[in-house]
């Protein structure tokens, strides 16, 4: 956008509207005004802070063992220790790093894939659209979890990169479908036709004219994708399909299950990571209520009277 920069220097008297900035502040204000999404934002902020400051917060190292095995909760180990003699609280704190990171990275990547495919699919017509339609439908009809398990088993302990890849491969199709529908309604609007008359190439029409009008749907899609990514990541780890040597909430569950924690009375080993996963997913879902309010101003207004 060199053009705009030149312009601002050429005419300093002109006030450019700070539109990107206002959009962000206005969105945040709307999110904050809605109590559900405010709660979600607070919970999410807690998890992110814990993930960032994990080394400071955790009393011990993530895989530091040598403590008493299968110990119950005590002053030294608030949540007890695992069968391998590791501190559960420390594992929980370090585990948040994986969940938050995988959630956001996988969510972001699958949103991007959904965006690129959904928008072009909605804009083009004819044979190309039919081909994309076939591929997307293929991904939609294959049940997600079995496909994930097959891919994960096939890729064999590739670690986090593999898990992210599996989640992205199985998670973009719905988003693409939603964005395609929205693109199709927007493409018949006059301003899109007008852009064609302005000599704009197709990619510019799709990404500069249509895309900015769907920001809130994309944001909603992102939070949805991040939620399912967090759940999928925990699920795969729990099934032992991930790298069981890293510390995440999923692997805590996996090892707790392996050591029959519930039978030995250490319910906290299953309960604590489960609750964390649920809370993190909940926080994103709550934020999505607020995102809905941005895309649909009717939800922003109070009751009629």
């Amino acid at each position: 956008m060199t053009t705009t920069q030149n312009i601002s220097t050429a005419a300093p008297g002109v006030t450019k509207p700070p539109r990107r900035f206002t959009f962000i502040t206005r969105s945040t204000a709307t999110l904050w005004a809605n109590w559900k999404s405010r709660l979600g934002l607070i919970i999410l902020a807690c998890f992110i802070l814990v993930a960032i400051f994990a080394p400071l917060l955790a009393p011990y190292g993530a895989s530091q063992d040598g403590f008493e095995r299968n110990a119950d909760a005590s002053a030294a180990h608030w949540f007890g220790t695992t069968a391998a003699g590791e501190d559960v609280l420390s594992q929980l704190i370090y585990g948040s790093q994986i969940s938050v990171a995988v959630g956001f990275i996988a969510g972001l990547l699958s949103t991007i894939v959904a965006m690129v495919i959904g928008l072009s699919w909605g804009y083009i017509r004819g044979f190309g659209a039919d081909v994309i339609n076939f591929i997307v439908n293929l991904f939609l009809v294959i049940p997600g979890l079995p496909l994930m398990i097959v891919i994960a088993a096939y890729l064999q302990n590739g670690g986090l990169v593999m898990i992210v890849a599996v989640i992205v491969i199985t998670g973009w199709a719905w988003g693409a479908r939603v964005l395609r529908a929205q693109t199709q309604t927007l493409r018949s609007r006059d301003f899109v036709t007008a852009a064609r008359f302005s000599g704009e190439p197709a990619w510019r029409i799709v990404f500069k004219e249509i895309l900015p009008n769907m920001t809130s749907i994309i944001a909603g899609g992102f939070f949805g994708a991040a939620t399912s990514a967090i759940l999928a990541e925990a699920g795969l780890e729990f099934l032992g399909l991930g790298d069981s040597s890293i510390v995440s909430w999923g692997t805590i569950l996996y090892w707790a299950q392996n050591s029959n924690a519930l039978l030995t009375g250490q319910w906290i080993l299953l309960f604590a990571p489960g609750l964390c996963i649920a809370l993190l997913a909940l926080s994103l879902t709550l934020i999505n209520f607020g995102v809905d309010a941005i895309s649909n101003p009717r939800l922003r207004e109070g009751k009629s009277r």
Binding site: T3, K16, P17, R19, S198, E200, E209
Partner: peptide, 26 residues
């Protein structure tokens, strides 16, 4: 509906000027 609600008047008018007129910048 003929103007994209998210673009300034300047952007909207710059596009055909750039595409058809080949003008840039100032």
């Amino acid at each position: 509906s003929a103007l994209n609600p998210l673009h300034t008047v300047e952007y909207t008018l710059t596009r055909p000027v750039v595409n058809f007129g080949g003008l840039r910048g100032p």
